[in-house]
Design a binder for these strands. Structure first.
Lengths: 323, 323
DNA sequence: CTGTTAGCGCCTTCAA
DNA sequence: TTGAAGGCGCTAACAG
């Protein structure tokens, strides 16, 4: 083993402070059994000596690593190709650094890979806490976490009525607010709601909000689900049948982009208000008046970590979006 | 400390095998000082008992964590909002899992955050190996890694002529091949090269390849740099001045999308061959015959890890792209 | 309130 | 070729 150049341990602290190692340890951990005076003295000394605890040693005695595992969806189950994920990572990491924890990730192209990854983390690296960046029904990974009684928090509302803890936006409310906002534009009476073919939970919720808003103002809701294949015809047919559409709310940027492609082709003169969720540089590519609801992915990430370190009876946290 | 339900240690193995702990340890590490016979016997026993080494303990004695830190660019220095990164992560992780290593990430919105993140990893978590997902001149993070003599590999060719080890595609060759391929389309004589405003190293290289190819076939190269602001006018002006353009090679998908937006507006009848680097679902949004060069980000990731675990005099690895 | 002692799981020098 | 003993840095049970 290559010797560290210089590395201050509690031993050094103990010696220099003229106390035993255990006292030093307790003082550094702010144990109330040590007199406040010596605690402060030792903590100051530690700071002066630039003491940094060795977490690999701590982990050994704790039986848990100072690591939170972040689990990515596979390509099939979701779309990890989404910038949203990077933002969430940044938020997660920010909260972790503050707690002297480290972010580790589990990622793979198939569920089995991911599961193997997670079990390795648990069994060999002693990771006990996880953040899931997706929800999926009958997910073997979640099954495993539950079975092993590990701590985990999901980002995004779980589909069933499961007891898992989660962090999410209030997507129903967001859908409603977005609709109301777009109706502020003078004369808008027929905003179209565009959703993807995947029926994500958040899409369902945003649509509910949309429908709620439309009901409130006594307008007829109109929903279009983008077809699986990226083809123009379906959209074109729909738009021809619905000449009345005078605004659009899409569940995400790519959806709006797909829609706009057809719109600008067959209605190229006409500008209408458009709305999307999540800010994205892609929206700059749309030659329309686009507004967006920022779901604040960073905040979702950092709140997830907070929830993870709260006692287990706190079930969920809602993150406020920004219009 | 919560007691583990059941956890087999080398002690158990040693006892059941009737040998001492040190022999068990050595046998499991395939130390040649132990007779092949007992080595095999003990390894078999370990497997039968589902023995898994405790890496937090190993790490303590090794003085190094079984962790590789993956460092993300900040938003300013690059664009982490790129799906490319997720693919690289997947590749990196795949190689790491095989080595019983874990992937940790350092990410932040400002360089200082990232640097703090990295130093914490080094000092407190004993991480000694890193993969950088970006290159930047005068990067304090790289400075730190060099100064501390830590092992790191960069993905993407470093700008200066620095001694850092890196993994990259042969972008010059890729640019040449892409150009040659597009020239195969009957009648193409004036393929335009579209690059971003950022002057990334890989763009420069691809352009070099493009210019090389054009020189070889004695055609006049034509390069357009997208303006910073997402505005149509510059592109439009350029296209009006260059009616001859009959094919496009863009350095990335968003660039092609931006270009195509104008193209389809002012030349909407005309279809031309287009080419982009990196596969991307966004390209499906272009109503043209688009081909792409797959730079194989997963492979870049996994090769980076291999390089990281090779002795330091191997300087670089080139990953083959796919046309 | 503080010190002594043992131990977490594994590795490695030293001795046989 | 193997074993005994000590140690990595830190924590915790038990004394005093």
């Amino acid at each position: 083993m290559k010797k560290e150049t210089l590395m201050i341990t509690i031993k050094d602290i103990a010696r220099r402070a003229g106390v035993s190692v255990s006292t030093a340890s307790r003082a550094l951990n702010n144990n109330s059994r040590i007199s406040l005076k010596t605690r402060e003295r030792i903590q100051k000394l530690a700071k002066d000596l630039d003491y940094l605890p060795n977490y690999t040693a701590k982990n050994l005695t704790r039986g848990e690593a100072n690591v939170v595992g972040v689990i990515f969806p596979t390509v099939e189950s979701s779309s990890p190709e989404n910038p949203f994920y990077i933002d969430m990572l940044r938020g997660i990491n920010q909260s972790l650094v503050a707690r002297h924890y480290v972010l580790s990730i589990a990622i793979g192209s198939r569920v089995e890979e991911v599961l193997a990854n997670v079990t390795a983390m648990v069994q060999q690296a002693k990771v006990k806490r996880f953040v899931l960046l997706y929800t999926d029904e009958n997910d073997p990974v979640v099954d495993y976490l539950r079975r092993e009684n590990l701590d985990f928090v999901v980002i995004g509302q779980p589909v069933g009525d499961l007891p898992d803890r989660y962090v999410d936006n209030d997507n129903v409310q967001a859908g409603r607010d977005a609709t109301m906002a777009i109706l502020q534009n003078g004369g808008v009476r027929n905003p179209l709601f565009v959703e993807s073919e995947y029926e994500w939970q958040y899409e369902r919720n945003r649509r509910m909000g949309y429908e709620k808003a439309m009901a409130e103002v006594q307008l007829e809701p109109l929903v279009f689900r983008l077809p699986k294949r990226v083809s123009e015809t379906a959209v074109e047919v729909f738009l021809n049948q619905h000449q009345e559409v005078d605004a659009v709310i899409a569940t995400d940027d790519v959806g709006l982009l797909r829609f706009n492609r057809v719109w600008s082709k067959i209605r190229h003169t006409k500008k209408i208000p458009m709305m999307s969720f999540n800010k994205s540089e892609l929206l700059a590519l749309i030659d329309q008046d686009v507004r967006m609801v920022d779901m604040r992915p960073e905040m979702l990430g950092s709140r997830a970590v907070e929830l993870l370190f709260t006692d287990r009876n706190v079930q969920k946290l809602i993150v406020q979006y920004e219009l």
